[in-house]
C-alpha cells in the first residue's frame, strides 16, 4: 500500500500537524519508503496467531478504588503556557 499527497494531508490533519504543500510532498515520498519497508510482513503467515497484548504473562493489577493523591491544582497547571486561577486557558471553543 502507498499514500498519495491528499492522504498525507488528511493524516496530517488527523495528527494535528500543520504541513504546507512542499512538506506534504516530501513526507509522501518518505512515508512510502517506510510503508514499502513494512510491506514484507505480508510474507508472514499469521493464520490462527493471536496478536500480542503483553510480553510478560501477567494478571491485571487492581488498586483500591480510592483517592490516593491530589489537592494541588496549582502544581498541575504550573507548567501550562497560559493558565488562570488554576484553570488551563485555551482559545474560545464555544461561541
Amino acid at each position: 500500500m502507498s499514500v498519495d499527497l491528499n492522504t498525507v494531508k488528511r493524516v496530517a490533519g488527523l495528527a494535528r500537524i500543520k504541513v504546507d504543500d512542499a512538506q506534504a510532498e516530501k513526507m509522501t515520498g518518505e512515508l512510502n519508503v517506510i510503508l514499502g519497508f513494512v510491506e514484507q510482513l505480508n510474507e508472514v503467515n499469521v493464520d490462527g496467531v493471536e496478536p500480542m497484548t503483553s510480553v510478560v504473562e501477567t494478571t491485571m493489577k487492581k488498586r483500591v478504588d480510592g483517592q490516593t493523591d491530589g489537592g494541588y491544582a496549582d502544581k498541575v497547571v504550573s507548567n501550562a503556557p497560559v493558565h488562570e486561577d488554576n484553570f488551563f486557558t485555551v482559545p474560545k471553543v464555544v461561541e
Binding site: 513494512v38 510482513l41 508472514v44 499469521v46 496467531v49 493471536e50 496478536p51 500480542m52 497484548t53
Partner: peptide
C-alpha cells in the same frame, strides 16, 4: 498484523 508477527 504487526502484533501477530510480534507473537511469532
Amino acid at each position: 498484523k504487526a502484533q501477530k508477527v510480534r507473537t511469532l
